[in-house]
Amino acid sequence: MNAQTRRLLVDGPVGPIEVAIDAPAGPPRGLALVAHPHPLFGGTLDNKVAQTLARAWLQLGFVAVRPNFRGVGGTAGSFDHGVGETDDLLAVLDHFTLQIAPQAGLEVHDLPLALAGFSFGAAVAARGAQALQQRGVALQHLTLVGTAVTRFDVPSIKPANAAPLAQRLLVLHGEQDDVVPLPAVLDWARPQQLPVVVFPGAGHFFHGLLLPLRDWVCHWHGAVS
């Protein structure tokens, strides 16, 4: 993403996981994991929307960590329909907080935690948030962009009669998304009484609108941190 981006391999359930790490210049204000879109359709940690989400969290002072999912780049394994990818996301979180951060002198163990994802990655981030809640781990921020509700089983992030999966929730979608139609996302959000921020004129990949996307994430999460 920039000259300061570090790439390394961490241990995962089925072998090494390639990750890219961007750290703020000063003491970190939190840790954000960003999940990329569908691996079988060219999704990698270098996807522009995933990079935009990482830049937003970096601008907010968080350490931003982007893993490559199974079978992508230097990550072992093969596509696992979001199941193994969720396991890998949690493995990266555990490895980072227990090993990488202490070695780099980063104190992140007790700092706010954010998950973010785009398309397939949004589904994985939601699943990861659900798994963290089951672990009893507090998640402060969850950001889902272009959530692939028509292609994968995305859990409710604001379930009825239960605590939301994160303290602060942000769902963004393009008005003219031709991969995951907006009405499908509204159908998913409606039973949860979950607001959806709609970008007028935006397609699935937010072409020409990445800066406004970054700014909205920064504004929302910066205003409520």
Rank of each mutant, 00 (worst) to 15 (best):
T75D: 11
A76V: 09
A76W: 10
A76I: 07
G77W: 12
S78H: 14
S78D: 14
S78Q: 14
S78G: 12
F79N: 12
F79M: 04
V83M: 01
G84V: 09
E85T: 08
E85D: 09
E85Y: 10
T86M: 08
T86A: 10
D87Y: 01
D88Q: 10
D88T: 10
D88N: 11
D88W: 09
L89Q: 06
A91F: 05
A91I: 05
L93A: 04
D94M: 02
D94E: 15
T97H: 03
Q99V: 12
Q99L: 10
Q99A: 12
Q99E: 14
I100E: 15
Q103W: 03
Q103Y: 00
A104M: 14
A104E: 15
G105I: 00
G105N: 07
L106N: 00
L106T: 00
E107F: 06
E107W: 02
P112S: 06
A114E: 06
A114L: 07
L115V: 02
A116R: 00
G117S: 06
F118V: 07
F118W: 00
S119I: 03
G121W: 12
A122V: 00
V124R: 01
A125S: 15
A126Q: 07
G128A: 06
Q133P: 06
Q134M: 11
R135E: 12
R135V: 04
V137H: 03
A138N: 08
Q140A: 13
Q140K: 12
Q140R: 14
H141C: 02
T143N: 10
L144M: 12
L144N: 03
V145E: 08
G146C: 09
T150N: 13
R151H: 13
R151W: 00
F152R: 01
D153F: 02
D153N: 12
P155V: 01
I157L: 06
I157A: 07
P159W: 02
P159V: 04
P159L: 01
A160Q: 13
A160L: 11
A160E: 13
N161K: 13
N161Q: 15
N161M: 09
N161F: 12
A162L: 12
A163H: 04
A166L: 04
R168S: 11
L169D: 06
L169Y: 08
L169E: 05
L169S: 08
G174S: 08
E175K: 04
Q176C: 08
Q176I: 10
D177N: 09
P181W: 01
L182Y: 06
